[in-house]
Design a protein around this nucleic acid. Structure first.
Lengths: 344, 344
DNA sequence: ACCGAGAGTGACAACGTTGTCTAGGCTCTA
DNA sequence: TAGAGCCTAGACAACGTTGTCACTCTCGGT
């Protein structure tokens, strides 16, 4: 009935505290008190207000509240790809911590694109999120300086921030990769290939460094042709793996730089006669059910997310001082594929 | 230096348009015009404003903007568990559509708890999200009525809404399960077990119905002991599977009601001498690499999310009319485990 | 009967932005 | 040269909430 020609895109003319106050025959502020459970309202008044709220279907407008109070009780999470199984547990862990602190989670994927990361981060800052958890795609985060100065708490996860000083939570990528490669060496391998992500990605670079360190410590050479960096797209990885296995000095084992690489390598090896050893960075579901089961360097994605989120809220609760670099250890999980002996 | 005793938890006293205006020596509204790219500002004025913005590190406060404009350019996504691999591609698809429409995504997990779902949904409504995509955990959504009336567009995915009329996007759970079980029957099986999720979950109920339909159509009986519903927790599923396989009338094939069940059943079967056929609802990564590779009824999670999000924005763009029920077909992917012959 | 204390309540400004309206300066035409 | 018309720019109110403050009323003590 009061349906005018077209409400011209307002959110449906929701009732406000003013409407509730009018209906209950009380002042605006009294409604506010009831809604927020503040003291100083008689039971009778409270009841009248509650009835009016019920009758009108009133719901407090948190946008206005945020404007007035200055805090949004929400944090932003920027990650690389929501669909990547590695990030599922991580974002779930961040969400749980946020929930425990009464905050909502706003998130988005950067798709590994630095510009898109920046766009997303700034959009979140414009929403005035209280804090940010960022898995960086880019390597220059100076654009965040005004935000940091303005008090937006920020914690980087999985990869460090570039060119700014900020808290960061990492896995021990270097040590994990070194352990994994050393494991292969201990099982007799001398020619070991490495397939990893783009070199500009911190985790990829660290893992490569770990690979080289293990080889060097064992006094083994590293042929250029044994190292393949670049995309983790299946076809790229597939051809890289095939090249490693067919050159003049074919490798007898492969260290895979992350879960997506590992999976593709498993597919390549499955078509092969000759057994080739494999250790992958990142655990993944069903790794134990494959034949051979896949030996991995496991990092705890949930722990990574939980630690970062807790650090963030610690900051929001006023923790002062130096930025921290927290590094979580990794764990070698031997399952079979990493214990195969070398076969030429 | 201007660091007062304690800024008492305001977000760091960020510069406002007023500050920018003062610094640039222009009026407040002129700054607003520049920030929003509105016409009617001379290049010279615009430059002065831009410089002031740069110098102060100004960033528009979207909370205030939202309050004034009435739309938040954000949508809420409530799902069951971010860490479940089924929901990764789904939420990623929703995010991409949101992004294409210039909206941010706020999300949370209900953890399959109806109360938590309601809490989350209402929190999102208080934020005045423009719309909601909900994978419901509960079966009574009347609490959403005031919101719907107020114009919050809502689309349910994967499972229908309870006791309210709303758009919904589903997979053909009934047909998919029927096809899968018929496939087993076509390969000679007569005693087929079903392991599924809690019966109150719509998808689980529909898939069970499909199972029964296929059996009935083939003139086969269904023993009570062949049907196990309840939790998808690995130990529950494990003992259910063991019971199916060891009773007086042991089954020769199992239909698994979702991806988590399938994975656990695969583990149980791996320890077994006797080959048991298996078809699972939901595809999952590496299903093709297991031995035998796992035959599944695949539903397209990304397509589910994309369809729902597009329907949502269609509504937000003013699409009137009846609520829709969109049902996406499933696809049988034979890989080996579903084609095993019965062995007693 | 008077005063002070305290509890309940509401008027009002403020948060930072945008929409509306109006003022002033300019160009163009008659 | 006056008037119409356009372009730029700013003053002001409004969005819905919360913090501050002041008012009224009741009650107890003297």
């Amino acid at each position: 009935m009061a349906q005018t020609a077209r409400p011209e895109y307002r959110y449906g003319n929701r009732p406000t505290m003013k409407d509730v106050a009018a209906r209950a025959g009380v002042g605006l502020k009294t409604v506010s008190r009831v809604v927020n459970g503040e003291p100083g309202v008689t039971p009778d008044t409270e009841r009248r207000v509650q009835e009016a709220i019920e009758a009108l279907g009133f719901r407090r407008n948190d946008s206005a509240r945020v404007l007035r109070k200055g805090r949004t009780a929400s944090i932003g999470l920027v990650l690389e790809d929501l669909a990547d199984p590695f990030y599922g547990p991580l974002s779930r862990a961040v969400e749980e911590v946020a929930r425990a602190h009464g905050a909502l989670l706003i998130n988005g994927s950067s798709a590994e694109d630095p510009d898109r990361e920046q766009e997303l981060v700034l959009a979140l800052c414009a929403r005035r999120v209280d804090g940010l958890v960022v898995i960086p795609a880019g390597d220059d985060h100076r654009y965040l300086e005004p935000e940091l100065k303005a008090g937006v708490a920020t914690v980087f996860v999985d990869r460090p921030a570039g060119r700014i000083d900020a808290d960061v939570v990492l896995s021990d990528n270097f040590g994990g990769a070194r352990d994994g490669v050393a494991h292969l060496i201990a099982h007799g391998h001398r020619r070991i290939g490495f397939i990893g992500d783009k070199a500009r990605i911190h985790t990829a670079a660290e893992r490569l460094r770990g690979y080289r360190a293990a080889m060097t410590e064992a006094g083994l050479p590293v042929h250029d042709s044994w190292v393949a960096l670049g995309s983790t797209a299946p076809d790229r990885v597939r051809s890289a793996a095939e090249a490693l296995l067919s050159g003049p000095e074919p490798v007898t084992a492969i260290f895979a730089g992350n879960n997506r690489v590992t999976v593709t390598v498993v597919r390549v090896l499955a078509d092969l006669e000759r057994p080739v050893a494999l250790v992958g960075f990142d655990d993944f579901e069903l790794a134990d059910l494959l034949r051979p089961a896949v030996t991995v360097i496991a990092q705890d994605a949930a722990q990574l997310g939980r630690t970062a989120a807790e650090r963030l809220f610690h900051r929001l609760d006023g923790a002062p001082g130096m930025t921290q670099r927290i590094e979580l250890t990794t764990r070698l999980v031997p399952r079979g594929s990493g214990e195969l002996p070398p076969v030429n």
